[in-house]
Simulated assay, not measured.
Amino acid sequence: MTLTQKTLEIATAQIGVEEIPRNSNSGPEVEIYLRSVGLSKGYAWCMAFVYWCTQKAALQINAKNPLKKTAGVLDQYNSRPLLVKKTPQPGDVFIMDFNNGAGHTGFVEKVTGTTIYTIEGNTNDAGGREGYKVARRKRDIKSVKGFLRLQN
């Protein structure tokens, strides 16, 4: 099994995890995601979720995690230029840029035309970047800055 496949499998198993209490950036699982990047509760955690899933997958299949240990979405994107792709494929990490340092991220589960189907942490039913759960979303590829491919 590849790192990409294992990471998606782990992310899928997290669907439904919620903050406790809602909109607090805390809770047992959320705090595990945040600790994986060296943070305590209370921080936005979409990138920490992506890092944790990838790190857990890497350990399980004895692979190297290509991602930087960071909770910063744009920090991750800017620090990994060799992973950047413009066209998504399943397992890629999508990066959104809302300017002024604000971003959002998650995994691409599938691609259909100009739509990506995703698994994201710290989102909500409206697809917000400051939500309270791990959930499946769908997004227009045009809303995405770029994609990070975990392996070639």
Results as ranks from 00 to 15, higher is better:
I119S: 00
G91C: 06
G106I: 02
V50I: 10
E18L: 07
N62T: 13
K133S: 07
R35D: 10
A44N: 13
K110H: 07
I32R: 15
S36Y: 01
G106K: 01
D75E: 14
P88M: 09
E31W: 07
G101Y: 10
P66S: 12
T4S: 13
R22D: 11
V108G: 03
L34G: 00
N23H: 14
E29L: 09
G91Y: 01
H104E: 06
K69T: 12
Q89D: 10
Y33G: 01
A44V: 10
M1T: 14
G121S: 08
S79G: 12
A13W: 08
T12Y: 04
W45A: 01
S40C: 04
R22I: 04
G101C: 09
D97Y: 03
I141Q: 14
V17Q: 11
L82P: 00
G42F: 08
E19A: 06
A135L: 10
C46T: 02
Q60D: 12
W52F: 13
C46N: 08
F107A: 03
F147Y: 15
F94R: 02
T12V: 05
K142H: 08
K85T: 04
K85L: 08
F98W: 14
T7R: 03
V30W: 05
R129A: 08
Q5P: 00
G16V: 08
Y132H: 13
T7K: 01
R137E: 01
I15T: 08
Q55L: 13
R139P: 01
P28V: 02
Y43F: 14
